[in-house]
Amino acid sequence: MKIRFAEEKDLNSIIELCKAHAQYERSSFKEENKKEQLSKHILNPDSEIKCLIAESDTEIIGYATFFKQFSTWDASYYMYVDCLFLKEKARGNGIGKQIMEFIKTCSKEEGCKIIQWQTPNFNTGAIKFYTQLGAARKNKERFFWKA
């Protein structure tokens, strides 16, 4: 098993994982323009958005995206994990922890002392996993407002 940054050849697999991730989190997903947009944002070397791939042999079994954000309250930057998803057969094997450790290393390199993310409150498997990592949680509601 290998964790690495995404490459052009991974885009179709990333889209399939995104679709499965959305379904898992009971959300909608539209494939329209995804390949072009993901290529533009996660493969651009000047982009702040990083995408990791978990690969077993030649199969992509998971992905994570993360990027640096600023906290006004803390007056410092933190790393935000937007997505972390593994195929069901890959869960429970330590791959998620390896991905999070990779993100932690990147965070330290970027001067970020905190990593933040969220998961739906019904995703008990993820909540258990994050708690086992030693992560603390805050209860908040996330809002979406179309511009």
Rank of each mutant, 00 (worst) to 15 (best):
D10C: 05
Q69L: 12
Y77M: 00
D46S: 15
C51L: 02
I3G: 09
Q37M: 15
K40Q: 14
A20C: 06
A64R: 12
G125I: 01
S56D: 14
K40S: 15
H41M: 10
H41A: 04
R137N: 09
L84R: 05
I42V: 15
I14V: 07
E88K: 14
C51D: 06
N33R: 15
W145K: 14
E7Y: 06
E25Y: 06
Y24M: 08
W73Y: 07
I103E: 00
C83N: 15
S71F: 12
Q23A: 15
L43A: 03
M1V: 09
F29L: 10
Q37Y: 12
K87M: 06
L17H: 08
N12K: 10
K50I: 04
K138N: 10
E16T: 14
T72K: 11
I127E: 08
F122Y: 03
I127S: 04
Y63I: 04
K40V: 08
D74S: 12
F29C: 09
C18Q: 13
L133N: 04
K50G: 02
E31W: 08
A22E: 11
S39L: 05
K138A: 03
F143R: 03
D74E: 15
K146Q: 12
R26Q: 12
E110H: 09
P45D: 13
E31M: 14
A126Q: 00
T72I: 10
I61E: 07
P45L: 02
Y80W: 07
F29V: 05
G92T: 12
F5K: 07
G92I: 03
A54N: 06
F29W: 06
G94L: 09
R26Y: 15
K40C: 11
A75Y: 05
P45I: 01
F122R: 06
K128S: 13
I53P: 00
N121I: 12
I60F: 07
S47P: 13
T105E: 10
K146D: 12
T105D: 05
F66W: 01
R142Y: 11
K104I: 03
D82F: 08
